[in-house]
């Protein structure tokens, strides 16, 4: 009986964790690249990156299905290795990454562009490689923005429904994440199961909000303590 609730919870947690990590690195890589890119196709690439945010998730899901399906280019390529993505657990991750990527990319790029380029240039003249400039200067200075981008992406991954359903379907114990399980419980008239799943989502949501608030408060206190140390000429 607990399997009904624990399986979706477990699948959701796994998916959210893996998808957020992937989105984090993909997003900041794309953001870093676009923040410095000055080529002709800038707005075109920018538009492509943000597209999943403006399209209905089901459309994104359909697009992924066409890519990863039996006749899709990626699907056919994976066929060579006897792997199918559609209706498997990795599909939930791919769907969540595709949907949350624009949020990570947009917010992180905004944060990177806020960093004073002179400070990055100073690091360069001091012998730092681009890699070191990014991790020792750009990232720490845009950390608040990148952190909120990560939290937004995580929340979006947790709530992902449309694209997941299209690509991963609803296979209990395999691809059914909490949002998908809630929908199908209601469809089956199983109101109690749906409500308990909703309760679980609420706990996770409030839990993470509380964690963020606690972490922010700590960071704020540390900053305030530092600022209070007097400036002595």
């Amino acid at each position: 009986m607990t399997e009904t609730y624990l399986a979706p919870l477990w699948i959701s947690l796994k998916t959210v964790l893996v998808a957020t990590v992937i989105t984090f690195f993909l997003g900041i890589a794309a953001a870093r690249w676009m923040a410095h890119y000055t080529g002709k196709c800038k707005s075109l690439i920018d538009g492509l990156f943000i597209l999943p945010l403006v399209l209905p998730p089901t459309v994104v899901g359909l697009g992924l299905l066409l890519l990863f399906g039996k006749n899709g280019p990626i699907g056919q390529f994976l066929e060579l290795f006897n792997t199918t993505i559609v209706f498997s657990w990795p599909a939930t991750v791919i769907a969540a990454v595709s949907i949350s990527f624009p949020l990570m990319y947009m917010t992180a790029r905004g944060a990177f562009e806020q960093v004073d380029t002179h400070i990055e240039d100073a690091a360069r003249t001091l012998g730092a490689s681009e890699w070191r400039v990014f991790w020792s200067v750009t990232m720490p200075l845009s950390w608040p923005g990148v952190a909120s981008a990560t939290i937004l992406s995580l929340a979006r991954c947790l709530g992902e429904f449309g694209a997941t359903l299209m690509l991963a379907g609803n296979i209990p114990g395999k691809t059914a994440t909490i949002p998908v399980a809630i929908y199908f419980s209601i469809q089956a008239g199983d109101m109690n199961v749906a409500l308990i799943l909703v309760g679980i989502v609420l706990v996770i949501a409030f839990g993470s909000l509380a964690a963020i608030a606690y972490w922010k408060g700590k960071a704020y206190k540390a900053r305030a303590a530092m600022a209070n140390r007097e400036v002595v000429e």
Binding site: D116, H118, I119, D121, A122, R124, T125, L126, G127, A128, S129
Partner: peptide, 14 residues
């Protein structure tokens, strides 16, 4: 820039 051994003091100090 990192290989030039040129020190730079920026206007806003950076």
């Amino acid at each position: 820039a990192r290989q030039r051994r040129v020190g730079f003091v920026f206007q806003n100090y950076a």
